[in-house]
Amino acid sequence: MYIAMNRFKVNPERVTEFEQIWLERETHLQGLPGFVVFQMLRGPEREDHVLYASHTVWRSQQDFDAWTHSEAFRKAHANAGRSKREGLYLGPPSFEGFTVIQTVNNEENDA
């Protein structure tokens, strides 16, 4: 398993706008080989920003890498740099990729 995360520092005055953009956005992820799940996470609030992280789980890093070179990736990110979003973010997103080395499941939920 491979987890890909982008962390976003969002202007506190524009949190509603940021969330609306993501809730209305077409991800183009469904049906892709190796894609497991996507989540947008809201994190702690700081004085100058609210931290968010997009979190995708992939069967392997190779599946994630293939997606980043696909037409689906280009479609999903086509409007990422729109100028009207100036001031929405405190800097560019910060990407972090993780290879899963251990998973612990709750057996009651696996039934």
Rank of each mutant, 00 (worst) to 15 (best):
G43D: 10
T27D: 08
W22C: 07
Q62K: 04
V50Y: 09
P44D: 13
R74G: 02
Q30I: 11
E47T: 13
V37W: 14
W58Q: 03
F38G: 04
R46Q: 08
L29R: 09
D65W: 01
R74Y: 01
L23I: 06
S70N: 03
S70C: 02
L29H: 12
A53K: 11
T56R: 06
T56W: 08
Q62N: 00
L23Q: 12
Q62F: 13
F73E: 03
L23D: 08
S60A: 14
W58H: 13
L29Q: 11
S70E: 06
R46N: 15
H28L: 03
G31R: 07
E47P: 01
D63Y: 01
F35M: 15
Q61R: 14
V50M: 07
A53W: 06
H77G: 09
G34H: 12
L23F: 11
F64R: 06
Q62R: 05
R46Y: 09
E24D: 13
H28C: 14
V36N: 14
E71W: 05
R74L: 04
T68F: 01
E47H: 13
F35N: 02
E45L: 08
T27K: 14
D48T: 00
A76N: 01
E24Q: 13
S54M: 03
Q30F: 13
E24C: 04
Q30S: 10
Y52M: 09
P44A: 15
D48A: 09
L32A: 12
R25S: 02
W58S: 10
L41Y: 10
M40D: 11
Q20C: 01
A72M: 08
L32F: 11
P33A: 15
E24T: 04
D65Q: 01
Y52C: 09
V57S: 09
E45N: 03
E24S: 04
T27C: 05
E26Q: 07
E71I: 00
P33V: 05
P44T: 14
Q62T: 02
G34E: 06
Q20E: 06
L29I: 03
W58F: 00
T27F: 13
H55V: 12
Q30N: 12
F73T: 07
I21P: 15
H77S: 08
H77L: 11
G34Y: 02
Q20M: 01
I21Q: 15
Q62V: 02
G43V: 00
R25M: 06
F64M: 11
S54T: 08
W67F: 00
H77Y: 14
G31F: 06
G43K: 12
R74A: 10
H28N: 08
R74M: 13
R46H: 05
V37K: 15
H49K: 11
F38E: 04
D65H: 00
E45A: 05
R59F: 03
K75V: 09
R46P: 13
R42S: 07
L32R: 15
Q61E: 05
S70A: 01
A72E: 12
I21G: 14
S54H: 07
Q39N: 14
I21H: 13
W22P: 15
W58V: 01
S60P: 09
D63G: 10
